[in-house]
Amino acid sequence: MIGFVTWRLAQLVPVLLVASALIFFMMYAVPGGPVAALVGENATQEQIAAVTEQFGLNRPVAVQYVDWLLRALTGDLGQSLHSREPVLKLIGERLPATLQLAAVATLIGLLVGVPLALASALSQGSWLDRALSGWSALALGVPTFWVGILLILLFAVELKLLPAASAYVPVWQDPWQMIRNAILPAGTLGLYVSGIFARFLRGSLITEFNADYVRTARSKGLKEGTVVARHVLRNAMLPFVTIVGIMLAGFIGGAVVTEAVFTYPGLGRLVIQAIGSRDYPLVQGCILVILAIYILINLLVDVLYVYIDPRIDYG
């Protein structure tokens, strides 16, 4: 088990290495490159030369990459070209906001999606099932930025109950303000992901309902509730755990649009700003952190499987 975790953590290294190289060379392939971003469009030849000299941009790209890499190994992802602050510091400021939003959104998605899926699967083929499946289709089909706009229109513009722009308030500081600020963006994302959860879990519940071992359980004279709880649900949860992990990971860095709608200070908006201002060290740092978190959450899911699926043994 420890060996497995170590092995999976070791896999992070080549992934991040390849990804960082790809990003690095892509960024430098842009016309004008980072110099243009630094000096602006109306710069003189002297200014360009000075900036090129100052940042060592006249060296070959490969040399610059190795230079960056060596410093990255010491935990220095460079400076933002824009604010001149360390990239890691900027990311560190935004990451807690994004993590909190992702967690609350996933929680809302589970609270809504799991009961929906159960009700749907237990009444397969009925009008209730069709209604609930229609609702899931709607929840996952409606663009989150439009839902966000509608929610702002209703709760901020018309009812004036909630702020139109959501600030990041850590839950341990002021839970009430946290809820007031997070409910709209997290609700928007939660609604969307509940549709995914419901549709996926319904499918896997129906597959398991038809499994032979469920018929065996019924032939033993178990109550239907016991059959569902002890046999069907546990087996259906297996693939579902993976989906929850993927969605949670997706919200970290993937909630860009929702963060933009609610002007929420998360990692996604940092990336947008960095791309807009061609702040390449910042873009690169953000993408690497998002990749690393994705891999870590997947690792977490795999470790979880050891405890919920006896067939899995990483030795």
């Binding site: 992934v15 390849v18 990804a19 790809l22 990003i23 892509m26 960024m27 392939a29 842009v30 016309p31 997706g250 860095g253 993937g254 860009v256 649009v257 996604g268 990336v271 947008i272 791309i275 061609r278 873009v283 993408i287 998002i290 990749l291 994705y294 891999i295």
Partner: peptide
């Protein structure tokens, strides 16, 4: 590797390069 980045993030990165 492409799957490890959220789709919107991948698209944003590509736009950053392509203009």
């Amino acid at each position: 590797l492409m799957l490890a980045l959220p789709g919107i993030m991948l698209a944003l990165a590509l736009i950053a390069v392509l203009g």
